[in-house]
């Protein structure tokens, strides 16, 4: 009996979290005048809302932009993060502890303080309306450095010594020896970084004005608040579905990794 109540609770909970998304997809495929019916099954399915949306905004281009930006940021964070993490965990040098404390300190620094000055730097560099503005400020990430440092500490010294005897340089040690032995850390840091970059809206709104360079969440945001959706629900929802779909599809296949990665980023902070 108790079991039944538990299952009922869980099913109700799951419906509350899933149903709105299912409704959104169904509504984006419904004729405009049936959207407010709230039914999951409109009289016919149509892709009119998608056609209209694609006419109005360069959604395909923005998907490519987002992929370029988020992939570059993720790759940069993995490379630079593992270099710094390696130096901090496996090398002795003066100032090492100081650098570590600085990294910890920057994690507590609220972004609200650097927002305006960072924008001014981007203006001075001439990077407004350039992917550089979206990528370079995010190439270093304190949390990822700390996670790499922690993970690299657990790798046996023998492995590194053996590579040194074979004449490997430090970079080769990091990318040829440590990386293949750090796949869980790479996945976790990769997912956290990619998701954070993919979902960022405030910064793109500030530094990108040219529609053909906008990231997907930025473009969809401006479409939703601007007058161009002409208060048609269908096109707004179609844009939202396009924005949600890539991540939801990735989530369906790799949900375990997503949950573990994002939960561990919460615990670390």
């Amino acid at each position: 009996m108790k079991k039944v109540i538990f299952y009922l609770l869980l099913i109700t909970g799951a419906l509350i979290f899933i149903y709105p998304f299912v409704w959104m997809i169904s509504a984006s495929l419904a004729p405009e005048n049936e959207i407010s019916n709230l039914t999951l099954f409109p009289s016919t399915f149509t892709i009119d809302s998608y056609k209209l949306m694609i006419d109005k905004i360069p959604i395909g281009q923005s998907l490519i932009n987002s992929l370029i930006v988020s992939s570059s940021v993720t790759l940069g964070v993995l490379i630079f993060g593992s270099m710094v993490g390696y130096a901090l965990s496996r090398m002795e040098f003066r100032g090492r502890d100081l650098i570590f404390y600085i990294i910890i300190f920057t994690m507590t620094l609220p972004f609200q303080i650097t927002l305006i000055p960072q924008y001014i730097i981007i203006v001075q560099f001439g990077w407004v309306d350039s992917f550089l503005a979206l990528i370079v400020p995010y190439l270093m990430n304190a949390l990822s450095i700390i996670m790499f440092r922690q993970y690299f500490k657990s790798i046996p010294q023998d492995l590194i010594d053996a590579a040194r005897i074979d004449g490997c340089g430090e970079l080769r040690i990091i990318f040829r020896i440590l990386w293949p032995n750090s796949v869980p850390a790479l996945i976790t840091i990769g997912i956290i970084t990619f998701m954070a970059s993919w979902n960022e809206v405030l910064w793109p709104l500030i530094v990108i004005r040219d529609e053909s360079l906008m990231t997907m969440p930025q473009l969809v945001t401006l479409f939703a608040v601007g007058g161009r959706a002409e208060s048609q629900l269908g096109v707004k929802l179609a844009a939202a579905v396009m924005l949600a779909l890539p991540i939801i599809i990735a989530y369906l296949f790799f949900q375990k990794y997503f949950i573990q990665s994002m939960a561990s980023s919460g615990i670390k902070e």
């Binding site: 909970g13 799951a14 998304f21 959104m24 809206v201 844009a239 924005l243 991540i247 949950i259 994002m262």
Partner: peptide, 25 residues
């Protein structure tokens, strides 16, 4: 695992999507 994944779904979706969706709700 299924229930956990279901509860986690809104976490991975962009806040932009969630906001547009809830604006309709």
């Amino acid at each position: 695992g299924f229930f956990r994944a279901a509860f986690f779904l809104p976490v991975i979706v962009s806040g932009v999507v969630v906001t547009i969706l809830w604006q309709q709700l």
